[in-house]
Design a protein around this nucleic acid. Structure first.
Length: 328
DNA sequence: CGCCTAATAT
DNA sequence: TATATTAGGC
């Protein structure tokens, strides 16, 4: 049925060989040129639902961050690439890898030592922008909880547990949605997510849980969230995307924010749990990889349950109408 | 062999 | 609990 169409568009940089050359930057430029222009890209904040509907559901359009954010992310990416190039230009190209991983660990709040893990405290809103640094620092801190020292030889030593932050999970869901359940396999998902540092195992594990979650929901969508399953949808999977069979040539793969689809047609009464949708997470981490940062950017219109703090990552998962995993 | 999924371990 | 790791099947 189809091979994965290779990247097209010089995206992934599979042949990063020439990166080491003096034209490293040229490469990057080339890559940039290949990207769609601002106007071409679907605005992250684009609403796929009618304004009235949004209004009715108290959905905030998310006006502020849009192209700007993307720009910033792009610059970030470029900067990172430059750094890598610079670093590795002296050595053999292959040796550039370690720095890559190192940078990742330094900058990825997602990856922290197991144990108590991430911060709790749902202070919520408060300042949003400036949080970046703090979040990073905090994460860094958490990261060193126990695993201090060690040279970070990236190889031969286990990475710390991956924490599926909402943002990261969002990306995951987006990609899965984009692929369609049928093609959503660990390797592909991992590649499309384009999150450095993320391993196939990570994705596989998460995917497993995700599927489990979907199943659960299918059986008895909502009955009585005993107190273990909070229901809100964050990234519903548009039916149209479920059938997607193309490999997705996207250069750096930023699927525009998926729009939550309120299920307004539900005339059936009886179930007391309204499928809340529209997470309004915002924080659409513009960039491609590393699309995660803070820990609890949750902002819902209602009020949040008291026992939210601890890993409720899957709260944002959404069931498909009916899917056959792996059936042709 | 690589990959995926289910089961189990930490 | 959330992830990681292992084991088995394709």
């Amino acid at each position: 049925m189809g091979e994965h169409g290779g990247g097209g568009g010089g995206g992934g940089g599979g042949d990063g060989v020439s990166l080491a050359g003096g034209d490293g930057r040229g490469r990057v430029m080339e890559w940039l040129v290949g990207l769609p222009s601002d106007e071409e890209l679907t605005p992250l904040s684009q609403s796929l639902i009618p304004p009235e509907l949004a209004s009715a559901f108290s959905i905030t359009p998310e006006p502020p961050r849009t192209i700007l954010d993307v720009h910033r992310a792009s610059q970030d990416s470029v900067a990172l690439l430059r750094r890598q190039i610079s670093s590795s230009s002296s050595s053999s190209p292959l040796k550039g890898f370690p720095s890559f991983a190192a940078a990742a660990e330094a900058e990825d709040p997602t990856v922290i030592e197991g144990d108590e893990s991430a911060a709790k405290d749902g202070s919520g809103e408060s300042s949003r922008k400036t949080r970046h640094l703090e979040a990073v620092e905090e994460a860094d801190s958490a990261f060193r909880t126990e695993n201090s020292n060690d040279e970070s030889s990236a190889r031969t030593h286990k990475r710390p547990r991956l924490v599926w932050t909402p943002q990261l999970h969002k990306r995951f869901v987006d990609v899965v949605a984009h692929l369609g359940i049928r093609n959503a396999v660990p390797k592909t998902i991992m590649q499309l997510m384009n999150v450095e540092g993320l391993t196939r195992e990570n994705v596989a594990s998460h995917l497993q849980k995700y599927r489990l979650y979907l199943k659960r929901m299918q059986g008895v969508s909502i009955e009585g969230p005993s107190s273990s399953d909070l229901l809100f949808a964050s990234s519903p999977v548009p039916p149209s995307l479920q059938e997607a069979s193309v490999p997705v040539p996207i250069p750096y793969a930023p699927p525009p924010a998926l729009i939550p689809m309120p299920v307004i047609g539900m005339a059936h009464h009886g179930h007391g749990a309204p499928m809340a949708m529209v997470p309004l997470n915002g924080q659409q981490s513009g960039g491609a990889y590393r699309g995660y940062e803070a820990h609890h950017p949750y902002a819902m219109f209602g009020e949040r349950p008291k026992d939210w703090p601890r890993g409720n990552n899957f709260a944002s998962m959404v069931p498909y109408p009916h899917v056959s995993p792996r059936s042709k």
